[in-house]
Design a protein around this nucleic acid. Structure first.
Lengths: 191, 191
DNA sequence: GCGTTACTTGACGTCATGGTCAAGAACCGT
DNA sequence: ACGGTTCTTGACCATGACGTCAAGTAACGC
């Protein structure tokens, strides 16, 4: 949709942009399962137009996922990568991902792999999982993080947080954050 | 419904029992939000009958919640109460509740307070929360469990597990169990 | 300006769920 | 075995979502 083979008419271009913007808003607020009619209303078009322009929910998601979440997930990986201490790096990465899951419900719809068949989304998950695995291995090498934690455990801890954050509703961020630390602390080897 | 003012007709009594049994099955399998039509089918009656006999989902739940989960939740409290070591007692209680949440999806619908306005269900939650708080306080008194953990934290840790267990799907029990230990370990004070 | 074509609309069909109720079936006392 | 009463049924309405398409509207090229 970004560089169409045949140039779009002016109103169509306007609408595509409007829908993208509206989708960012609505998806941020309510997650990727929001009714498309909601997006349509916010964009001031009818839902038929969304189907025309994006082919349905999947296409729409793929059109906004980069701006919506991919950048931020990758940003966290990069920021963590700059931390020298492996344990701190690993824990910082996990903590930030977990907080992002709280702050952006849409992240969970991606991380929960709730969108089978979407190549860009799958790639994003893959990338996040690999980053986590790398950081985990480094952190375990120091002996501070338990050796019996598997990369799959980390994936699932992220998955679990996604489920929680999605259901979080009005839970205060501070308590959520504090409970993250319990799990993080539990990943360390006994002293 | 257990001791009706006016004696029920034979077919009605038969149906009430059939519906209760079917509800136990269906609720165990799919949680307390299963379509009532499902229960009706399993009981070999039509859904109208359920509305007649139990007044709707809420009434039906109240009619089975005792057998479905209350007994087991209380059982865990009692069993834990017999453990002498406060830390072990606290951890055992939490672990068993968490596992029950995995094993019986219906427990979560109760513990998640997803049934506003149901007195017996609310009482059950209350009881579980109080038990947990008591065990927590004892465990903290030994200095082994972090002093900054609040009873509300424990409530919410249980709540979080409920959300997770409910979404768990095909996740293997063993991994679920292992990840519980991370959190449990995280509740202990640093050594 | 005007015809052609791209674009948009919103009503429609569908599905899954919750809940209701008039009409018919089953039971029970006599 | 029959009448009155209790009980059950399943069609019915409502809601809220998805996805489609014929018909109407608006932009573009000339």
């Amino acid at each position: 949709m970004s560089t169409p083979a045949t140039r779009l008419r002016a109103d169509a271009r306007r609408n595509v942009e409007g829908i993208r913007t509206a989708a960012l808003d609505v998806f941020r607020e309510r997650g990727l399962n929001s009714p498309l009619e909601e997006v349509a209303r916010a964009a001031g078009v009818s839902k038929g137009t969304i189907y025309h322009r994006f082919g349905g929910r999947q296409g729409l998601i793929e059109a906004v996922v980069e701006e919506l979440v991919a950048e931020r997930i990758r940003g966290i990986g990069v920021a963590a990568g700059e931390i020298a201490d492996p344990v701190e790096r690993f824990e910082h990465y996990l903590r930030e991902i977990w907080l992002l899951q709280y702050d952006e419900p849409a992240v969970n719809d991606v991380l929960l792999r709730a969108l089978p068949g979407s190549e860009p989304v799958a790639a994003l998950c893959e990338h996040a999982a690999e980053t986590a695995a790398r950081f985990l291995a480094d952190a375990q090498a120091t002996g501070v993080v338990r050796a019996d934690v598997t990369p799959e455990d980390v994936d699932l801890l992220i998955w679990e947080r996604g489920i929680i954050a999605r259901a979080c509703g009005q839970q205060p961020r501070e308590g959520y954050r504090r409970r993250l630390e319990y799990t993080l602390r539990g990943l360390r080897a006994a002293a």
